[in-house]
Design a protein around this nucleic acid. Sequence first.
DNA 1: TGATAGAGTTGGAATTCAGGACTTACAGGA
DNA 2: TCCTGTAAGTCCTGAATTCCAACTCTATCA
Lengths: 144, 144
Amino acid sequence: MRGRDCSIANALAVVGERWSLLALREVMLGVRRFDQIARNTGASRDILTTRLRGLEAAGVLERRQYEAHPPRYEYVLTDAGRALNTVLLTLMQWGDRYVTEGEPPAVWRHSCGAELQVKTVCAECGEELRPSSLTPIRVGAVPA
Amino acid sequence: MRGRDCSIANALAVVGERWSLLALREVMLGVRRFDQIARNTGASRDILTTRLRGLEAAGVLERRQYEAHPPRYEYVLTDAGRALNTVLLTLMQWGDRYVTEGEPPAVWRHSCGAELQVKTVCAECGEELRPSSLTPIRVGAVPA
DNA sequence: TGATAGAGTTGGAATTCAGGACTTACAGGA
DNA sequence: TCCTGTAAGTCCTGAATTCCAACTCTATCA
């Protein structure tokens, strides 16, 4: 595994495989069951099994038995998994603006009453991020 | 292409394949040349070619000839590509917190002077997003 | 008794990927 | 002139993944 030392790469090693983020989207929507996740994502069942195990091993999901006889399981988010909601919403908004044609397929309401639009800001000053307002202080090294 | 109608899925169709986001990370860092992008991401050259062509076709990157003899090209971001910086930074921060061990490999400075930490907020009220403050108004349908 | 549901497994075909060698086009140095 | 180097790919082969459909197992429902 060569390439620049980077948390984007590390994050993608956990959630970057095909179907992983879509499975997480479903869990965030409250869908906890294997069959439903499979149907709603479109992933084939064997791959979905592999992905869910991976996400569990990475600490993003938990697999919980909710019935003993017959044994049945459901998937719930850990803290790390819940923290991905900002990533998913930011990506969704990008998709709404630059990829999806027509109306956004999904709309959320924020507790303030508004239909949610997300904004990514500097935590310190609160200003909206623009590429031109950023300069790298340090970037990960690339192994020789 | 089954699965829920969703801008996350649509966005991932454009940037969700392996190496795509890492190639975009490099371009955002100012790396424009094929060889350097290949080295810094670790992608194999033929796959990288395929990805760059895909990103170009999707309107996220532009391929520009910067020298006629011999013909040489460089890659630059379009508006859509530049707009991905929030996605990348949000993902990076998640990786810093939940995946990368030790210090964050990359640090940015915001024009306000602070070392950048990003925050994802409601564009309307400015409050930081938390999963509990969101409710779906509408979600994409799943084809039968 | 048979049908249904949930949560996977299994097997084989199709696709994608890794890694390295090769190509083309030119510039500079010996 | 010949040799070497650089940039941007292309090509090839074998290995790894993914897709798809069918199958399993357990237990409840009608």
